[in-house]
């Protein structure tokens, strides 16, 4: 369990003091993937850097598994940091070292291992991230995704109990992003490793996180299980972040798929049909009975829109015929 207790951090800017973090508290359960999202300048980097004290908060405490790291002296903190991995947006690899030597670097810092032991560990880590064949290359010879794999291998070298990711995929193209997110999910599952990641991209939260905190102007404006926050975003910032990414409820299809055995349909209402009892009408016509899984009603620029996610319990017509039937009522239906 990681506990952030009312930390604040101010920066001086031209004689003015601005609060990068304003009384932030978080509780992160062991083994979960915790996302922190917010717009640029919201204080995300400052917050994640407070978790390994690269940045010291002006006030407040950070405890990792019951140990208050803000009380550690420099030496003890350096020791503790060896078991907190960190992954960076711009990778921050040593140009002067090969891939293998980069991964070996934290092992050298920690000491206490023979060269042979270190080499064995490096091979293990490179296998974990799928870079065995690039062992002797320099970072400059790697693609962005490969560099980030090196960054991840390096972060895992000393068996951390916490992995921090600062916009780990923000410099990568969408496909590479997916691959890196999948790798992080794998690592979380395989090693039971707690991951805290920050991002400005709701898709990252959706794909990866169990819990999420929304940060705005240095404050946590919303936090909870990703599912809850997506189904019922409370704060305007959360809602606009969701809307911008084009994610209504349907985005959660992956999660439902695992839990609901029946076929799932997503109904999207835009404009007038939103205000009509369309589902009820179609239900009577074709004997459709559904189990509502989630729904929202909202507005984009004065146009009402809604989304329903429903499990099909019974239907007189084949599920594949439903889209056409709903289309007649001006409602888009997708079978997920």
């Amino acid at each position: 369990m990681i506990e952030v207790q009312s930390i604040s951090k101010h920066y001086q800017h031209g004689g003015k003091s601005i609060a990068a973090l304003d009384n932030v508290s978080l509780q992160i359960a062991s083994g979960e993937i915790y996302g922190i999202i917010g717009r640029s300048g919201a204080g995300k980097s400052t917050l994640i850097r407070c978790l390994n004290l690269l940045e010291r908060p002006d006030s407040g405490h950070v405890s990792l598994h019951g140990e208050d790291i803000t009380r550690l002296d420099e030496r003890a903190l350096q020791q503790r940091r060896q078991r907190i991995g960190m992954v960076f947006q711009h990778f921050n690899l040593l140009r002067s070292r090969t891939v293998a030597a980069n991964v070996r670097f934290p092992l050298e810092l920690a000491g206490g291992q023979s060269p042979a032991q270190m080499d064995a560990r490096v091979d293990e880590l490179l296998a974990l991230v799928g870079l065995q064949d690039h062992k002797h290359k320099r970072p400059s010879q790697l693609s962005g995704g490969q560099k980030q794999r090196v960054g991840i291998a390096r972060a895992l070298a000393n068996h951390p109990d916490l992995l921090l990711c600062d916009e780990a995929t923000s410099a990568l193209d969408p496909e590479t992003t997916d691959a890196i997110l999948a790798l992080l999910a794998d690592i979380n599952r395989q090693l039971g490793l707690t991951i805290v990641l920050i991002t400005h991209d709701m898709r990252v939260i959706r794909q990866l996180c169990d819990s999420v905190a929304v940060l705005d102007h240095g404050r946590v404006v919303e936090q909870g299980k990703v599912l809850d926050v997506f189904l019922a975003p409370q704060h305007a910032v959360t809602q606009s972040l969701l809307a911008e990414t084009g994610m209504g409820q349907g985005a959660l299809q992956g999660i439902w798929r695992q839990r609901v055995a029946t076929p799932v349909i997503k109904l999207t209402f835009v404009g007038e049909p939103t205000l009509q009892p369309v589902l009820d009408k179609v239900g009577r016509e074709v004997g459709l009975r559904v189990n509502l899984l989630s729904g929202t009603l909202s507005e984009i620029k004065d146009t009402p829109f809604g989304q329903l996610l429903a499990g099909v319990v019974a239907s007189d017509v084949d599920v594949s015929a439903l889209p056409a039937i709903f289309a007649r009522e001006g409602v888009r239906c997708e079978v997920l």
Partner: peptide, 25 residues
């Protein structure tokens, strides 16, 4: 700076940073 910071995040001491990061890099 990011590379120096990365080393700090791994628990590097000043001597580590000088001899393993600054000078080689």
């Amino acid at each position: 700076r990011g590379v120096i910071e990365a080393s700090q995040s791994m628990g590097a001491r000043l001597s580590h940073i000088v001899f393993k990061v600054l000078l080689p890099e």
